[in-house]
Amino acid sequence: MSKFQFPESIKSRPVYGTLKARPGKYHLMIADAEGAEAILHLHEQDAGLMAKAHIIYIPKGSNLGERLRAIRPAQYYEGPTYEAAASRIERVLEATHMGTQIYLTGTEGLMGQAMRACMNAGIPHTAIQTEHRGSVARRMQCVHCKGITEDVETDPFECSHCGLNLFVRDHYSRRLAAFQGVCIDAEDPGNVPEKVELYK
């Protein structure tokens, strides 16, 4: 079981739920890593979904792809990274019609970026189901250089672009699909607290 209870937080922080099979003409499921388990759970709820489902999966080193294939979705794609899958996702969203259900599951970075793609395609974020599974790593934007650092697991962390030491804020932008990282030693240069694993 890879579900994590996020602590209470501020209003801009996304809140994730549990995917539920909903009636629809077409079911677009985008997942990474352990997100596959949430899709398998959807299949348990309603196996009929899969005849109208398109699964886009980024394994990130997990071996759950075979099990997803085995539930026989109408369309199945596996890609190495979100970036690699991005243009495909945009193309699929372009062609979606009323009555499409969207399910996003896995890491926050995957859900955030896929949600942004959905919003850019005109789908309101409130109409999209999400379920967090797997790593609690975050996708962070450095507020100073604007560079994105993927899969941040500690607070503070070093910006992968400009190298500043950043602390992890809960403030979240759906448009950037990222949390905000802010210089931690601006008022006392060099005084950087020891890295702590997120939520520990």
Binding site: I10, K11, S12, R13, Q141, D170, H171, R175
Partner: peptide
């Protein structure tokens, strides 16, 4: 506060970091 980060947010979201007032 950063417009570049907050642009597109709703009233509650861009005020999210303010303590006590919510």
């Amino acid at each position: 506060w950063s417009l570049d980060f907050d642009i597109g947010m709703n009233f509650f979201e861009w005020h999210a970091p303010v303590p006590l007032a919510h």
